[in-house]
Design a protein around this nucleic acid. Sequence first.
DNA 1: GAGATATAGTTTCATTTGAAACTATATCTC
DNA 2: GAGATATAGTTTCAAATGAAACTATATCTC
Lengths: 167, 167
Amino acid sequence: MPSGEAAIPHSPATLKLDGYLPYRLSVASNAVSRLIARAYEDRFGLTIPQWRLIAVLAEDGPLTQHAIGSRTVMDKVTVSRATQGLVKRSLVQRAPHDVDGRSHRLALSKAGARLYKEVAPVALEYEARLLQEFEPAAVAGLKQLLLHLERIAAELAAGDGAAASAP
Amino acid sequence: MPSGEAAIPHSPATLKLDGYLPYRLSVASNAVSRLIARAYEDRFGLTIPQWRLIAVLAEDGPLTQHAIGSRTVMDKVTVSRATQGLVKRSLVQRAPHDVDGRSHRLALSKAGARLYKEVAPVALEYEARLLQEFEPAAVAGLKQLLLHLERIAAELAAGDGAAASAP
DNA sequence: GAGATATAGTTTCATTTGAAACTATATCTC
DNA sequence: GAGATATAGTTTCAAATGAAACTATATCTC
């Protein structure tokens, strides 16, 4: 990490909670998550982890739980529990993994695929409403920024003073 | 809410989880919160609610718990617990509210103010690191967008089909 | 091929969270 | 000013979360 000199300060020298990024981010994310969680729960009986799992199976086809976890940034415990709920409702099918006896191959069932087709437009509609006042370019920029933040936060967390330069 | 016609779609007609705003937002926010939470906990023994409480008392001076809650978008239970912890460590002082017997006036103690002066630069440094690769304008835009999202999410949550037009 | 070590997934447990019930005080209506 | 109703803050309880221990299977090393 390049040492010392404070480059262009992006933040005022004095802290203002209202303009503090981690705060703004957390508050916005909570508000959105809460809205979405309620919608999925009320309309489809799905938790957010379950929804993510369905979405990723619909997009990428059959996956192991491990793959789902890394693909969707969810803990293995979270994935395990989401899976159990979905299997119980027969929205997801589990087959043994042919080459690895510890693992399973998860796939959407017919019913799961049908449900996905119902949920996806609702999901898109919520997103559209949330973003309706913004320029498409601004939205694209926001998403890029979020991805970037995520990466940097992970880097800082990994080597918070330690490994940062060496690959 | 204006009816029907789908204006300019900000989102593709097909859902891609990776580009789905609520997902990106949640993942980014979790990554940042986790980083920050660990930092505050390790270095200062503060939880995020406690940190928010200190920050807002430092900025705005004495407040009731209720005021802190609405100012920082925290549940009254969260504020209550954060307060208890801080009072126990004598970082915050509680005085009866002169006009309202149910309420209290919370203020930073000397020690609390000192701690704030230690934490604030660390907080700013984390923010600066998270944002170091971005243009100041992009950062300002992001914060605006987050505020906006928060407001819209709250509106949608309040009247999710119900009251939306009538004031 | 027999340990040793790693990985997929589950279970257990302790912590966090927030809704709902509760207590105490204010305010409003008659 | 006596209920009725609202509000500040706490406590209680149930659900969500994720770290750590655990089980079962793979892989690696000799």
